[in-house]
Design a protein around this nucleic acid. Structure first.
Lengths: 144, 144
DNA sequence: AATAAACATGTATTTTGTATACATGTTTAT
DNA sequence: ATAAACATGTATACAAAATACATGTTTATT
């Protein structure tokens, strides 16, 4: 059980971008250097986040990216849910491909569903703002 | 985010075996037929469950498998934890391979840890016994 | 107008983990 | 001796994720 590296990267991009002051732009280059992730990967993640309307991009020279909404409006739970897309925890979670004969009477799926709900309930209690509360410390770690 | 099919199969094997009356043996063949999973896979899963000391195997003709402990003593949470082994939810969960510069000050891992704890807390409230409470219904679905 | 710095986007390759299959061995009741 | 059962190591196939490459578009600067 794990999250995609992709999700990890997306969260890091948002942490970085969310720390920039109001209209200041972050660049893919900058982010890739701070985290030592290739520009290619950052680019891909940024592209996705733009499509999700969490960040805005400004093209051309002196372009870059910035938050499309304030950090306190970006809910960590909803974010992870979107980034992780498919939660086929068991075969029977996907009615299309399920072959398990006992699934109509099996209570396991309900148990796991409750567990998943609890998982996200915790994440939903946080916003991006909570993740950058210790801005000064993070800035230092980033070498800024 | 998902569990391994392997974990799914293990749970199904236990549901089947846990439904057998006291000293009655289940066989890999039987289980593979009920769930339409190849004997090879069931064998592998059974092997693992034997190593985990959750089921006992009896070799030779008229052999088979049976629970090593009563279903009410098999905790679903602990079981899933063991079966899923690595929870590298984020790169920084594994100190050996982590490269993220901000991890010393990053609170994201704590948030996700809390979510994981909540996830397992739910699962830990159930035992195998809870999953086979509706034995009659399950038996019918299995065509027994 | 040319150039450079930035993002955009489609595609290809590599890697990894999982799922699956195969082959052969061991045990024990009949 | 045989057949029915589990034991176990190894090999293959497949899919998803991670990574890399190539090329395009936009816009400020010179």
């Amino acid at each position: 059980m794990n999250l995609k590296k992709y999700t990890d990267y997306a969260l890091r991009v948002l942490i970085f971008t969310g720390m920039k002051s109001d209209q200041e732009l972050a660049t893919i280059k900058e982010i890739s250097e701070v985290y030592t992730i290739s520009q290619e990967h950052v680019r891909k993640v940024v592209h996705e986040l733009v499509k999700m309307e969490l960040i805005e991009s400004v093209r051309g020279r002196h372009g870059g990216i910035r938050m499309a909404k304030p950090p306190e409006e970006i809910n960590v739970g909803r974010l992870v849910r979107q980034l992780e897309a498919d939660f086929v925890i068991l075969e029977c979670f996907d009615k299309g491909t399920n072959h398990c004969v006992i699934s109509p009477g099996c209570t396991l799926k309900h148990v796991l569903n409750r567990a998943l709900v609890a998982f996200f309930k915790v994440l939903e209690a946080y916003t991006l703002k909570d993740l950058i509360k210790n801005e000064e410390e993070l800035r230092e770690l980033m070498g800024l």
